[in-house]
């Protein structure tokens, strides 16, 4: 089963260790990045990693504005908008395993080398229709 682990710039509940990364010590930044890389590498080894991407904080809302007219854009985003920072897609045995892994990812070290306790959103993918449905 595939799950999306969603990381937010903002919009998630406030984590325990909530200090912007540029205010950490340089080696704390390194430790955090290493933790994230190691985590992804470990999931590749266990055969559970599917994809991981990071997103820039910039962007805009876009919508159709009628025949022959260019799409309407609304941006930059308001300060109140829930803002996605990136994701990891995992393919695991169960919901419990997805939660376990999200918990590990959320333990990534932050300021003072202490876990950030960042809130991650875990969402099951809707699947393709199975061959045998009855």
């Amino acid at each position: 089963m595939k799950y999306l682990l969603l990381k937010h710039y903002r919009g998630a509940p406030t984590p325990v260790n909530d200090v912007p990364m540029d205010q950490w010590m340089p080696d704390e930044v390194d430790a955090h990045i290493k933790y994230m890389n190691d985590f992804a590498a470990r999931l590749e080894e266990t055969g559970e990693f599917v994809d991981g991407q990071a997103l820039a904080p910039e962007g805009a809302f876009v919508r159709y504005d009628g025949e022959g007219r260019p799409p309407v854009t609304d941006g930059p985003f308001a300060e109140t908008k829930d803002l996605i920072a990136g994701w990891m897609v995992i393919d695991v045995e169960s919901w419990d395993r997805a939660v376990e892994l999200a918990g590990e990812l959320s333990a990534a070290p932050g300021k003072g080398g202490e876990p950030i306790h960042e809130w991650l959103e875990v969402r099951p993918f809707l699947t393709e229709a199975p061959t045998v449905a009855e």
Partner: peptide, 14 residues
């Protein structure tokens, strides 16, 4: 590049 610049910010703050 993002990680590098974050590290630079952290270095200067240090």
């Amino acid at each position: 590049e993002r990680d590098h610049l974050t590290r630079e910010a952290a270095r200067v703050r240090q």
